[in-house]
Amino acid sequence: MRLPATAFEERPGDTIARASCRPPRPLRGWGDFSRPALELRVRSLLDGCEIRNQKRRRNHRPVARTDTKAPFLFLVLLVTAALGLLASCGGDDQPSGANSPARHADASGAQPETAFPLTIEGSDGVAVTLEAPTRRIVSLSAHATEILCAIGAGDAIVAVERWANCPLGSNEKPALDAYQPNLEAIASYNPDFVYVFSDRDGIVEALRRVRIPVLYLKLPSSIDGVLEQIELFGRITGHTAEAADLVRSMRQRIDAVKERISDIQVGPRIFHELDPTYYTAAPNSFVGDFYNILKARNIAEGAETQYPQLSAELIIERDPEVIILADQGAEVTPEAVKARPGWDQISAVKHDRICAVDPDIVSRPGPRVVDGLEALAKCLYPERFQ
C-alpha cells in the first residue's frame, strides 16, 4: 500500500526512506591567497593558461572561454600588486581551501561570498560544477522549492515540483511532475541548474546527455541534514548570507525546544500515524528524528524499515501514551481514532492525548521543520509548551 504523494516527497519504501545528505566537497579556488598559490596563479597567467583545482566530471556543461595573452607590462604590474597584497598582510601564509578564514563568517557574523567555480558531488558520486550562481533553476522537489524561496532565491526559479510553489501557497511558478519527469518539459525552461531528489525514469542521465547541469541529491535524513542543505542552496544561488541567517534562526528555535526539556530523561511513548493503514515512522527515519530530539519512545523501535506498517494489535500492545496524526488527505480525526475497535485500551485514547499535525511540516525536509518540531513538542509536553 502506498501513501498519497502529498504525505511525503517520497512514499514509504521510496527514496525518502533511504535518504542521505552528502555535503559538497571543499574547494580551492581564487579565494586562496596564500603566497604559493598566488605565485602559481601568476605563473599560469604568464603562460597564458588557467590552473584548475577541480577535475571536471564528464557531466559538466562546458562554458566557453577566450584566453588572451595580456601585455607583459600589465603582467608585471599584476605581480607587483600581488606581492604588495601579501606584504600588507604581514607575509604570513594563510590556510587555503575550505578551511580558509575567507570562507567562514568573520567576528561580526558576516558571511563570505561563495567562490566559483563551485563543485558539488551528488548522491550518485557524480559532481556538477557551476561557474556562477544559478539564475534559472528547475526545482523538482517541494522541499528544495521551499528552501530556495525562504533564502530569497525565488526569482531564480523558473519551474517547480507541483506540490510546492514560490511564494508558498501560490501558483506563480509553472509546475512539473517529479514523479513522471519529462525531459522536453524541463529543457523548455532553458535551465542552468536542475535539482532532483530521485532519479525517476532515468531523468538524471537524460539531462546529462543534453548537457543540462543536474544535481541528484537525496533528501536529508535528519533535521541537521536539512540545515546543511539550506546552506548548500545558499552557496549554489549566491545567497550565502540569507541561508546563514535562516539556519541561525532555526538553530536558535531548536535549541530553545531542547532547553525546555533538558531535565527530562525519558519522554512519552508515541505512535506517529502516517495513514489509516498504520504506516508509521521508525526512529532511524527523517520523521523519527523529530522524536529523537524530543526524547520520545517510539513504538516503532526495532522495525526493519524506516517507514514500517504496524498492525492494530501491535499498536494496542505497545500502548502509546501520545498518538500523532499526520494523515495527509485521509482526514482522520481524534474521534475516529477513539472509535477504532480495541483502541479504548490505549493510554493515549484514555487520556485524550491525540494530536493532529500538518503533514507538510513534519514530513517535508525544508525550512518549516522547526514549526513541526515545536508543534510536536506541544503534543508531547503541553505543560511546557503553551
Rank of each mutant, 00 (worst) to 15 (best):
R11L: 04
C21Y: 15
R22F: 14
G29R: 04
G31R: 09
G31S: 14
D32C: 12
F33T: 14
P36R: 04
E39L: 15
L40P: 00
N53C: 02
R61C: 13
V63Q: 15
L75Y: 03
L77F: 08
L86M: 12
A98T: 00
N99Y: 14
P101I: 02
H104C: 00
A107C: 05
A110F: 01
T114R: 12
T119A: 04
D124M: 05
A132D: 10
P133G: 09
R135P: 12
V138S: 13
A153R: 00
G154T: 03
W163N: 15
L168W: 04
L168T: 12
G169L: 04
E172A: 15
A178D: 09
Y189H: 15
V210Q: 09
Y216M: 05
G225T: 08
I230K: 02
E231P: 00
G234S: 01
D245F: 00
I254P: 03
D255R: 07
V257L: 07
L274V: 06
Y278R: 13
N292L: 12
R297F: 00
A300P: 11
G302A: 01
E317P: 00
D319G: 02
I324P: 06
V332Q: 13
Q345I: 01
C355H: 15
A356M: 08
E374R: 06
F385Q: 02
